[in-house]
Amino acid sequence: MSDLTPAATPVTIAVVDAGVSDPSSPRLLADRIAQKTVDTLRASGTTATVRSIGLGPLATDIAQGIASGMLNPAVQSAMELLASADAVIAATPVYKAGVSGLFKSFADLIDNDLLIAKPIVLAATGGSARHAMVVDEQLRPLFAFLRAIPMPTSLYAAPEDWGSTDLGKRIARAAQELSVMLRSGAGRQIADSERHLRPARLPPTARRPRRAQSPGGAALLRRFRAGDRSADPAAGDRHRGTACGQQPQLAGSRAHHVDDVLGLESSPP
């Protein structure tokens, strides 16, 4: 039992829901999963704290993050909560046979290393039982890419499921799986080993520098892209080749040549 998390060690569970109404069906489902998990952990002597991340109020902030590539304080706080949590419960509504755009946009902002080996329960709600496979077909591959550890039992609730005992049984099973993972400490151990094995990122001053641009290169490139063909550094070569009966360079080759002349790189440093 030495590999198990001591019963006295408290854990934190982050609940992420993409519902936009109050209350929303994803939030109601996520809350039921969270409460059952807390009860299961308490029965085994482990204290759990639940912290919620509602994506509805963050919709504008998430859209700005997608457009700008920068996280504002509200979204950054949500990411920090995710990073500090020991486990995650993620719930989304199903729209047009797919997860909501709000949920996917938030997931697109998550750093690839943020959820490594973090146990997660996947859940969704929808207006028809026909969408029940969305959780396993869309959410599971998404969090597998992020290297989280989805629980074996995924949850989906259609309108007719809310009063069913079967939904309660599935929630209890998923809660039990998450509780076992949390008490084992396996996810934390995997994450720690990943941090040790991951190569350290070089500081900016130690990274491979770009090739220096020739004087005036940036201005020349802007003129060329704006349609000023006299600024094409390859123009002379192309015209000479045509005069000698050779075929002119293709547009793609010309653009590649422009980058070479200006000393630009297409690959990141």
Rank of each mutant, 00 (worst) to 15 (best):
A85D: 02
R140N: 06
P233T: 04
R201V: 09
G227D: 11
P152N: 12
L142A: 07
G263P: 07
R223D: 14
S100R: 04
A235R: 15
L102E: 01
S2D: 14
L142C: 04
S266K: 12
I120Y: 01
A129T: 15
V38G: 03
N112E: 12
S21V: 09
R188G: 06
G56F: 07
P73H: 01
D31W: 03
T60H: 14
G56P: 05
R27H: 07
S2M: 11
V258D: 05
R208A: 10
A191D: 00
P93C: 05
P23D: 01
S105D: 07
R32P: 01
V261S: 05
G216C: 02
E137T: 15
A78Y: 00
C244S: 13
V75K: 04
G65Q: 01
V134M: 13
V50N: 03
A243F: 14
L28Y: 00
G69M: 07
R207M: 14
Y156H: 10
G65T: 04
P233R: 03
A83D: 09
P26A: 10
G45H: 05
E137W: 08
S214Q: 13
A107E: 00
T49D: 11
I190K: 01
S52L: 14
A200T: 15
F106W: 09
L178C: 02
G126Q: 11
R225P: 06
A7H: 11
D22H: 15
D108W: 01
L122Y: 09
L142G: 02
I89C: 04
Q35T: 10
G187V: 03
R42A: 13
A14N: 05
G263A: 06
S128P: 03
A226P: 11
G54V: 14
P215N: 05
A219L: 14
Q247T: 12
L220K: 10
S266T: 13
D86T: 05
R188H: 10
T9V: 09
A186T: 15
L178D: 03
D108G: 07
P23S: 06
S105K: 02
L81A: 03
G245K: 06
A90V: 14
P209T: 11
G101D: 03
I110G: 02
F143K: 03
P269F: 11
G101V: 03
L167M: 05
A234G: 13
P268S: 09
S214K: 14
S84C: 08
R207W: 09
T49E: 13
A255V: 12
F103P: 00
S2E: 14
K36F: 00
L71E: 06
T165W: 07
